[in-house]
């Protein structure tokens, strides 16, 4: 069983090494992510963000603009995740025993 686990980790690593053959080199400015239009002619999001973040939201920090405006719904999801963590800890660990003890 243990060897099976090690083998699957090895297969996973080999798979990722195989994936490297298609990846663009580190910092390659000609990669598709860094172009202005994609292969089918739609705009590439990141270049649009760099060019228009200041015009659209008056904010120099592009990450804030992406986080707060272009992809704000992801940020709402992130908020919900952290809220979920809080209420889950409350659900799992809180016993609400103190009030009962006071009543007795």
């Amino acid at each position: 069983m243990k060897y099976l686990t090690f083998m699957s980790i090895g297969v996973f690593a080999l798979l990722l090494i195989y994936a490297a053959y298609g990846l663009p080199y580190r910092g390659d400015p000609n990669a598709l992510v860094n172009q202005e239009i994609s292969l089918t002619g739609t705009p590439v999001a990141s270049s649009y963000y760099i060019e228009n973040a200041m015009k659209d939201a008056n904010t120099p920090n592009m990450v804030t603009t992406v986080l707060g405006d272009y992809r704000a719904f992801d940020t709402l999801g992130e908020e919900v995740v952290i809220f979920a963590a809080g209420i889950i800890c409350f659900l799992l660990l809180n016993r609400e025993r103190k009030r009962e003890a006071r009543k007795q």
Binding site: Y18, A20, G22, L23, A31, Q35, T40, T42, V44, S46
Partner: peptide, 25 residues
């Protein structure tokens, strides 16, 4: 994302056939 530059499903449906021989995909 780093191969195609987009995260939208409809967009990817059009782009991915153009790069389907890439090992990364």
């Amino acid at each position: 994302y780093f191969m195609s530059g987009t995260l939208n499903m409809n967009d990817l449906y059009n782009i991915l056939p153009l790069m389907s021989d890439s090992p990364t995909i």
